[in-house]
Amino acid sequence: MDIKISEVKLSEEQAGKWGLVIDQDICTGCQACVAACAMENNLSFVGEEDSGYGRSMHWIRIERFWEGEYPEVKMTPNQPMMCQQCGSAPCEPVCPVFATVHSEAEQLNLQVYNRCVGTRYCANNCPYQVRSFNWRDYERPEPLPNQLNPDVTVRRRGVMEKCTFCIQRIHQAQDQAKAEGREVVDGEFTTACAQACPASAIIFGRVDDPESLVSQLGRRSHGVKHLEELGTLPNVTYFKGG
């Protein structure tokens, strides 16, 4: 079998497809996105002991920083951090089994669970520290298995996982649109974190469509892409102090 993929573009030219815009000024740090993400994507409940070892599993987390010396400390705006779906991702070239690959169709970083052998190389090479590893098969006591999302794989011990931009919702929306013979409309669906955000601090959509809400918001001048200087071409834009 021979598969010919069209020539891979230079990383500088590669345009993202899906993206997030996060307004840190209106984020209250309520953690609703963290909970919604865990429910949507079948995240394991790691528990106190393993969390103590730094093995907690979240695909999105709220980062807090402090400025100044005690007692004059000031908290900076909350910073939700998830996989930035880099256009040129540092996690990809280090995987020895190609379990983390770039999706040409959706321009996302995929984690293929059935390929992953658990070297944890990708997590160590991720500058955003957003990958989490299944150190154990964590227990899901009854009736918790009933809330598992059937559209998402339940990961087992020894595989890496990370935010997928709710690729199951992307596929569902595309499938729905195709069945109805139309294109996916901007705002028709969104990720679990964006859906749960009570302040609408997280907005999801097409970054390659100049008319979409994310593109319009993304053009505001004070937008920041984290660690852009590393050349990772992240697809998440942050706004702070605007």
């Binding site: 010919k4 993929i5 690959v101 999706s103 169709a105 959706e106 997928t164 690729i167």
Partner: peptide, 25 residues
């Protein structure tokens, strides 16, 4: 096998049908 066959010469379709994320997520 079937995915590649049904894509034929359509590059865009082939990319979609041979993408890992089409079936695995």
């Amino acid at each position: 096998n079937c995915h590649v066959k049904s894509a034929g010469d359509d590059q865009e379709k082939l990319v979609k049908l041979s993408d890992c994320g089409t079936c695995h997520y």
